[in-house]
């Protein structure tokens, strides 16, 4: 589904990603762990094609080299992302954006209601949304988009218990996690700090990013327990 090879990303003259290699198979869902500032969000943004990044290396999606492709083309091919900090878009309504994504009217309302955002369709996108509302607004947009590879940047940060369950349910639905593993064809990459989303979405694999590199991969539960116990310092000791 996704293969990232020797990815280097320079942002504003600074090297943020320093040779990232990563592979996600069809049907596979992975979590990405790592300390603040290690480059997790940058990796996701690079995969969808943030045009302000200076990039070397290659990104393959469904076997196609998408490294130089404009973002909208990547989305058309089945990529989708939820932002850690979605920007406010003054004057543009949540409904407008969902309509642009070709969602039909009735469905849009139904999905918004389900995400507790029925009254938000007519509001300016992300303007004055609370932390949890922002996360739900990102999810409802992904529900409309129905991507084959979902990149989720901290979908669980700042979300209360009930909404966490709701978000988990929606992620599982998009990823078709209820189908048997060999029938699953959608993949996910989820950034999380505390792993709270893992109560609901059971990932197959985990990666740890330190200082712009993926330094380790393994069973998600084990990785997160190690990190919770020994911190990322423990990771550093382990790899050195």
């Amino acid at each position: 589904m996704l293969e990232v090879k020797d990815l280097e990303v320079i942002v504003g003259g600074r090297k943020i990603l320093d040779g990232v290699n990563l592979r996600i198979d069809p049907g596979e869902t992975c979590v990405l762990l790592g300390p603040n500032g290690s480059g997790k969000s940058t990796l996701l943004q690079a995969i969808v094609g943030n045009p302000t990044y200076q990039i070397t290396g290659t990104i393959f999606f469904k076997g196609e080299d998408i490294t130089q492709m404009p973002t909208n083309e990547r989305i058309k091919r089945g990529l989708g992302i939820s932002f850690q900090h979605p920007p406010a878009v003054r004057g543009v309504k949540l409904l407008d954006v969902m309509e642009e994504m070709h969602g039909d009217g009735e469905k849009i309302e139904e999905m918004a209601e389900r995400m507790g955002l029925g009254d938000f369709l007519e509001r300016d996108l992300n303007l004055g949304f609370s932390g949890g509302e922002l996360k739900r607004s990102e999810m409802v947009q992904l529900l409309t988009l129905q991507p084959d590879l979902v990149l989720l940047d901290e979908p669980d940060s700042g979300v209360d218990v009930e909404n966490l369950e709701l978000i988990g349910e929606v992620i599982n639905e998009i990823l078709k996690r209820s189908s048997k593993p060999r029938f699953r064809n959608r993949s996910g990459l989820i950034i999380t700090h505390m792993g709270s989303i893992m109560q609901y979405v059971k990932p197959d694999k985990g990666f740890v990013m330190l200082d712009g590199k993926i330094v380790c991969s393994g069973k998600p539960e084990e990785l997160i327990n190690q990190i919770k116990k020994n911190g990322y310092e423990g990771c550093m000791k382990c790899i050195n």
């Binding site: 909208n72 004057g91 642009e100 988009l145």
Partner: peptide, 29 residues
């Protein structure tokens, strides 16, 4: 128009022009 906003709208599948049109239409009311 902020680059961040354009980038965000592009990540929803909009082309650069569609994103600009949407922001402009929103601005005009």
């Amino acid at each position: 128009i902020s680059e961040e906003v354009l980038n965000y709208l592009r990540s929803r599948g909009l082309t650069e022009d569609q994103a600009i049109d949407l922001v402009v239409a929103g601005f005009l009311g």
